[in-house]
Write a protein that binds this DNA or RNA. Sequence first.
DNA 1: TTACGGGTTCGAGTACACTCTAAGTCAAGT
DNA 2: ACTTGACTTAGAGTGTACTCGAACCCGTAA
Lengths: 125, 125
Amino acid sequence: MKIGELARRSGLTTHTIRYYERIGLLAYADRDSSGQRRYGADILVWIEFLHRLKETGMPIREMMDYAALRAKGSQSGPARRRMLEQHREIVRARISQLSANLVVLDQKIAGYASAEQGTLDDDEN
Amino acid sequence: MKIGELARRSGLTTHTIRYYERIGLLAYADRDSSGQRRYGADILVWIEFLHRLKETGMPIREMMDYAALRAKGSQSGPARRRMLEQHREIVRARISQLSANLVVLDQKIAGYASAEQGTLDDDEN
DNA sequence: TTACGGGTTCGAGTACACTCTAAGTCAAGT
DNA sequence: ACTTGACTTAGAGTGTACTCGAACCCGTAA
């Protein structure tokens, strides 16, 4: 497929796909006779994985490191596993933090709700 | 207290405190006779709350809206409650998303671990 | 009195992750 | 032949949230 179709199917823009190739997140794509990028379907799996890393807050730099390991082939498996394990801890910590903050938010909202019932005055935050 | 002490106690830098004042996240602080900012202890509570909003991913623009409502006094309570309720939904969604991605990450790591045991080959991501 | 550790303002600079523009090429449809 | 839409490159611009620098002022201890 060409870059436009990949864009539609991956949810990235063509700009972003080229940008990712430039910085090494996506491998340099084979070009056809007129110089246009041609992709196989397997790149969608990789982009989806990148999307997950991004969604979980991994910085692009780290994704680049991961991509570089991946490009070295299966011998880099253990290193990639270690990266993912570290990242997993960050994600777990983030979930805990958000959950804790969610509790405080709930309390705050309950405080406002009470104030609206006239049973309490609010605390000015 | 002066800005330096507030910085130490709040975890913000003096630069950031002045920046927050500039954009309206913190109220314009009273100045002493030599023009230096003087803060009461109550601002720490507000900064801590701002920190929570930030940690949960609220953009500064929205925090500014919230701060503006707060500056209007207790009559803005209901509007603030609605803002927090909307934000709470965003936080809940984010936690769900992270949790879902965490599961995938676990599977991926398990896949690498199996590959290292020699029981499977990896899938090249 | 002079050095020091604060503080002040304004405006410029930084990091991240895109996002877009300019100027051009190319293939297919009418 | 011409238009349309998709593609190419290099490089500039954007938005967010700070972060820092320059040039200056002010109060206190040696």
